[in-house]
Amino acid sequence: MSDSTPQADSLLPLPPATFHILMALAEEDRHGYAIIQDVAARTGGELKLSAGTLYRSIQRMLEQGLIVETQERPAPELDDERRRYYRITPFGTAVARAEARRLTQLVKLARASGFAPGKA
């Protein structure tokens, strides 16, 4: 629990969409549609975020300080000026870690109860 602050814990558990968006932004800054595609790819097409769910989550995540809008743009030929790019904040990273830890604990407990396969 080194980098998890009480503030980060207060946001847990994260809504699935929020956690997925954080994961999509873990490697690089992305714009909205790229996030949707990344989430879809990561989940093997299982989760296709709708535009509404995406931007509603983004709005809330901006307010919570999990992500920020970046002013840095990619190379002009790749850029579309309508698009906004989002970047995970250190706080966002902390929250995502805390959530991951929470889920791990949960899975451990589930295993101990014999609910899940794998080593206990």
């Binding site: 909205g32 549609y33 509404g52 931007y55 709005q59 309508r82 698009r83």
Partner: peptide
Amino acid sequence: EYGAEMRGIF
């Protein structure tokens, strides 16, 4: 805030 991008995605 997001209308234009949502239209784009749609």
